[in-house]
């Protein structure tokens, strides 16, 4: 098995674990971390599969850079929401029933 495929397989596992973590109810911070695990998994599959042949493909590398920045943005927004929810006076209705 090539290194690229190994990356892709690990990425598949990370994605699955992360997605389950986002889907399950729980503390917002835990779900935000899970989202990051999920995103990293998907990006690892993207670069891993493209490098199965051994060479480096710059196109998915650039896509992954874009994907990381998008994940940073989403994480920041999620943290801002979670933080405001956790702020005093906002706690009353923050029960996670989804």
């Amino acid at each position: 098995m090539s290194t690229g495929m190994l990356f892709a397989l690990v990425g598949a596992l990370l994605f699955t674990m992360g997605a389950a973590g986002v889907a399950l109810p729980g503390a917002p911070l835990r779900r935000i971390v899970a989202f990051n695990v999920m995103g990293s998994g998907a990006l690892l599959v993207l670069v891993g599969l493209a490098q199965r042949g051994g060479g480096v493909d710059p196109v998915p590398q650039a896509m992954v850079l874009t994907g990381i920045v998008v994940a940073v943005a989403a994480t920041a927004l999620a943290l801002a929401l979670a933080r405001r929810l956790g702020a005093p006076g906002a706690r009353a209705a923050s029960g996670d029933d989804d």
Partner: peptide, 17 residues
């Protein structure tokens, strides 16, 4: 299912490089 699908992929072509 996902791992099975990954392992079943054919050898990569030349692609975009």
């Amino acid at each position: 299912v996902l791992i099975g699908a990954l392992l079943g992929l054919p050898a990569p072509g030349a692609g975009l490089p």
